[in-house]
């Protein structure tokens, strides 16, 4: 049961990354980071209790979204979903991420919620997170001892749990530059338009000479974390994407997922439509990225 009243906590307003790291070193799991706050503030009205909330509002250098054709995309910790939508480079080079941002929650939430916050939430229903899993990349973490990068494939441990240590600040998400012939797309199903995903899929395909060279295929809401579908990727790699191959993928998808019954849908339904969704998101990726 929710409340109209938030837990008591100290709001800390550091003005540099070093200060944030210092605070995290001191408070560890008794502190929460506030960037967009769209998950945190709700959690604080339920049963999540921490004594310290560390706001990133006054920390310089974290709100930058930069694209370099050689180095790829860097998404700073305070970059919002709306910032993603405003970026022509993201739309052009990483359609899956742009499409996920486009349907993400509502306009008000898109203006506030951050991409990195979505990743750190470690929900199997995260939309931008799913696009990032398909595109590949890493989370840049910093603590008092230094920085490290964790590949997104290894970042989510279980529901709500990530590889981030209590004393680490997630600084940015880094996506490699797009390969020649890279196509990507995101697609989801919901109960109504403005809703959390009940099942979602994203792909990134490197096409060359009419065949798929490499593939990353990811799904949401089919297990405790967002997952990749290695069996489907294997079917795609080296194949011409023909109707027969797509049919093979439809049949193979269900074997790779482990959905449950929950309030948004049933395991039975998710198993039935997962293959259809993957087939469609592949078609969408090939169709000019599906940005239309």
């Amino acid at each position: 049961m929710t409340s109209r009243v938030m837990r008591d906590f100290d709001l800390l307003l550091p003005e540099s990354v070093a200060e944030v790291v210092d605070l995290l070193t001191r408070h560890k799991n008794n502190a929460a980071i506030l960037a967009g706050g769209t998950d945190l503030l709700i959690a604080l009205k339920f049963d999540y209790a921490v004594d310290n909330v560390i706001s990133l509002a006054l920390v310089p250098g974290l709100a930058e979204l930069t694209f370099d054709p050689e180095k790829g995309l860097v998404i700073g910790a305070r970059v919002t979903i709306a910032d993603i939508l405003k970026s022509p480079e993201v739309r052009e080079n990483y359609p899956a991420l742009w499409q996920a941002a486009k349907v993400f929650a509502t306009p008000q939430l898109r203006n506030t919620a951050t991409v990195l916050g979505n990743v750190l939430r470690a929900s199997p229903a995260g939309d931008c997170s799913l696009a990032l899993l398909a595109l590949g990349g890493s989370v840049l973490l910093k603590n008092s001892r230094g920085e490290r990068e964790v590949d997104i494939d290894n970042f989510w441990i279980s529901y709500g749990v990530t590889a981030r240590q209590d004393d680490e600040l997630a600084m940015a998400f880094k996506i490699p530059p797009p390969a020649a012939g890279q196509k990507s797309a995101f697609r989801r199903m919901t109960r109504t338009t403005e809703d959390l995903s009940k099942i979602s899929a994203a792909v990134s395909l490197q096409m060359g000479g009419g065949t798929c060279q490499t593939a990353r295929v990811a799904m949401g809401c089919v297990g405790p974390t967002l997952v990749r579908l290695p069996g489907v990727e294997k079917i795609l790699e080296g194949a011409e994407i023909s109707p027969e191959v797509l049919q093979e993928i439809v049949a193979a998808t269900a074997a790779e997922i482990n959905p449950i019954d929950d309030k948004r849908s049933s395991a039975e339904y998710r198993l039935k439509v997962a293959g259809v969704l993957v087939k469609r998101v592949i078609g969408q990726a090939l169709d000019n990225g599906g940005n239309n």
Binding site: T2, R191, T192, T193, E194, D195, L196, K263, R264
Partner: peptide
């Protein structure tokens, strides 16, 4: 009750 809020009780929104 499993859905006594707008999180899991879904009404048609403007875009629906």
């Amino acid at each position: 009750c499993q859905n006594n809020s707008f999180t899991d009780y879904k009404m048609f929104g403007p875009s629906d």
